[in-house]
Design a binder for these strands. Structure first.
Lengths: 250, 250
DNA sequence: CGTACGCTTGACTGAGGTCAACCCAGGTGG
DNA sequence: CCACCTGGGTTGACCTCAGTCAAGCGTACG
């Protein structure tokens, strides 16, 4: 539970142009020259251990981060110790846009597992956005995607019943796995029940019951964190409120 | 219920440097020269009538809008006719950032009342962001504020009980009125019960009951859309989950 | 003037929260 | 290596908050 325990390993950094995630990440759409500028600006190997914080609300420095391996959650916490988890970030995802408003992060980001990220500090980021229109474009797309994702979550929390919320989540996680070249029918949840329940705005017990229900109905098979989707059609049907066709969802 | 019925009145446009909202809006922090570039790029008098749409999901053209008078709601709607209202925009507020991801809006924006907005089309916007770092900065601040606002709403929907949700909303609306130089203890709701209930993720009947409850407890006085806050301290206490001190909230 | 719509209130119901017990896996120390 | 402990997860019993259904009221509008 340390505050910001960032270790930097100088060696073994994977360059963007060799990174398997470059199509999901900031480099997308940059030419060779632009890519070089970006590469020089980022710190490519920030390691944080499970449960450590990548950043915390009101930290002095702030940056944009790209997850390379592992998983990160962001959360808002209230004076009285409650929290609302805002998102789960997987390899290829960017986070840290919350700091735009006041030059400091407004939520906490904690590793769900031992995690590796790339860091682009805000000054370099600003500079690159001024210089490279392609970089600005890609940045905008990422911010747009983040906003869209949050809109979906608002819809989920505001309109759906608990079973639909879980179905929506699983369906979207399945898509995200597909995008990354993993199986969309069999995968491990990167987070504990506690965190997922909070994210979906329900009690842990309710979440557990909904997992059981989906399993009893033959829609999924659950073994701890391992999920197998047995009947994708019915899962998607439960998540019917979702707006966009799969291909465009994040 | 027309689709995009934008009328442009060439005359009587208020220039940014004369606009009373310039401190909340994009011009903030621009010098005289920069302001002129901005002024030339925006269409200053788009009028839309109550219930008409400012933009709709998947519209061909897309822009950033600043509300000058009136009020606008944005909402996500699902295939099966449900919707989730995402935000209410008052004079001085900017909207339209949702179009960043895919070059088209991903939600609908509808006028709650006869409304006047300024429009900055996306190409000009991109161009200005490239040229002016101050403009980029202000834009980032606005996007950050939007993200922060959505985070607060997620917290509200995910963690609070209905009474707390309403208290949180009223308290935040009170702050927004204060920022605009209006009374923070007595104001009109710009939206119908139906919309507010949807926004806060509850049934209209429940919302109505919560209004009555707050009134019976002597915290507010309600007359249709006119709200008087009688006991601000207790209202804020009910909205205790809120993160930031008032001054920094949007 | 009548109709419709927005809002409120009441009675009932049910989804989901709470409390509690229990189970299981993984880590720790003897 | 085993015994213990702790923390995450599941299940059951119960209760409550909020949704649904229905009626009634006032204002706005054609």
């Amino acid at each position: 539970m340390k505050t910001v325990p960032i270790q930097t390993a100088k060696k073994s950094a994977v360059a963007c142009h060799n990174c398997s995630l470059s199509e999901l990440c900031l480099p997308r759409g940059l030419n060779r020259e632009e890519l070089e500028l970006l590469e020089n600006a980022i710190n490519k190997t920030v390691k944080i251990k499970k449960k450590d914080y990548l950043f915390r609300r009101d930290d002095q420095q702030y940056s944009i981060y790209a997850v390379k391996a592992g998983a990160v959650k962001t959360a808002l916490s209230t004076p009285d110790g409650e929290e609302q988890i805002l998102g789960f970030y997987l390899p290829g995802d960017l986070l840290g846009f919350d700091a735009f408003a006041n030059n400091r992060h407004t939520c906490d980001a904690q590793a769900l597992d031992d995690t590796l990220v790339c860091e682009l500090n805000m000054d370099s980021f600003q500079e690159l956005c001024g210089k490279l229109s392609s970089m600005r474009g890609q940045m905008m797309r990422q911010i747009g995607a983040e906003i869209e994702r949050e809109h979906m979550l608002l819809l989920t929390l505001g309109q759906m019943r608990t079973e639909e919320r879980l179905a929506t989540f699983l369906s979207s996680l399945s898509e995200r796995n597909k995008e990354r070249g993993f199986s969309c029918t069999e995968f491990n949840l990167p987070m504990a029940r506690h965190d997922l329940a909070n994210y979906l705005g329900m009690a842990v017990e309710t979440l557990s019951r909904m997992f059981s229900r989906l399993q009893d109905d033959g829609i999924i098979a659950v073994q701890h964190r391992l999920i197998k989707i047995e009947d994708m059609a019915r899962l998607k049907q439960l998540a019917h409120h979702t707006c966009r066709p799969a291909s465009e969802a994040r």
